[in-house]
Design a protein around this nucleic acid. Structure first.
Lengths: 169, 169
DNA sequence: CCCATATTGTCAGTATACTGTCAATCTAGA
DNA sequence: TCTAGATTGACAGTATACTGACAATATGGG
């Protein structure tokens, strides 16, 4: 017996995990931008600042691995952060291809000052859920992202992507 | 006593719901495109096709409410679907501003044929979790998206957005 | 009927994201 | 050492997403 194809309704969209992830991403960005409007920083730019703060002198390729962005995308992000004078780019002496990234004074200040707003945004995203459910969702999401890591073009290569920093570079 | 600001580490990024949602969205799109590569349809284009299939003669503004996209974004999506001859746009007789959207024969065929691939993609996204956890995650996500509906620029206005279709138009 | 207001599709501008390509450069193996 | 292959940053092209603006059109109150 063949199973008949079910009729196509909007439920096919509304209940699909892919749709829910897209929708939640939209909402999350919206909340972030609203809470952080005073700083004129997008979520991506914020993540890049944190990574450069944590790993001063990182290069663009390694940065892309550490925050799981495409190298192409990251190029533009870096450009914008540089034009806002939040970061500095210095050519590496050991490898003429590489440009090393550093937080500027202004960048460090912005990063320090934006943290409470970021924190508020993150809380707001999960606020509508009961506390226990927030924990559950976060745990499952963390698990799922980790287990699906290889499915995206730029898998996350957290800290260990930097193990050979200064050795190869 | 003031609480000291915690040191800024990558954990501030990795454990933030906003980061996890962005990451999961990347992964979801990646899986969708891979499974549906034979059809050259993006997730957004697929959602638009389903909505137009379900509501033939819908206009762009109402379509945007039904799938929760920006009207601006949707304009380009519609253009692409039209240039692929998957949909048709006909001017409304009652309202000269409005262009009504219909699935073409080709559009209906593509939509019918792509469904199994879409289904596979949706399954794959949650595959790494235990079955019970998939259910839990999906339920919490559905809840959260619903409760946060108003937080995004274009809140979802599902079917009831169409209640007055043909009355006002 | 007229006009203030709202709606519709469109456009310009910005910012992710991805694919694919390229020249410059580096590295490792023969 | 010389060179095949890899890496790096950059670029072009496509596709979401959003903000804000606009002309054309529609609607409702006076």
């Amino acid at each position: 017996m063949q199973s008949k194809p079910s009729p196509i309704t909007m439920d096919a969209v509304y209940t699909a995990p892919g749709y829910l992830f897209r929708r939640m991403q939209q909402i999350a960005v919206s909340i972030f931008v609203e809470e952080c409007s005073a700083f004129d920083l997008t979520p991506v730019q914020y993540a890049a600042l944190v990574a450069i703060h944590t790993h001063p002198g990182i290069d663009a390729t390694r940065l892309s691995a550490v925050i799981a962005f495409d190298r192409s995308t990251l190029g533009n992000v870096i450009e914008r952060l540089e034009s806002k004078a939040l970061i500095e780019r210095k050519p590496s002496r050991e490898d003429k291809r590489v440009k090393l990234l550093y937080l500027s004074k202004a960048g460090a200040t912005v990063l320090r000052d934006i943290m409470p707003s970021v924190e508020r945004a993150q809380v707001r995203m999960l606020q509508p859920l009961k506390p226990a459910d927030r924990k559950t969702l976060l745990a499952l999401l963390t698990q799922l992202v980790d287990l699906n890591n290889e499915a995206s073009r730029v898998p996350l290569r957290a800290e260990d992507a930097l193990e050979h920093l200064g050795k190869a570079g």
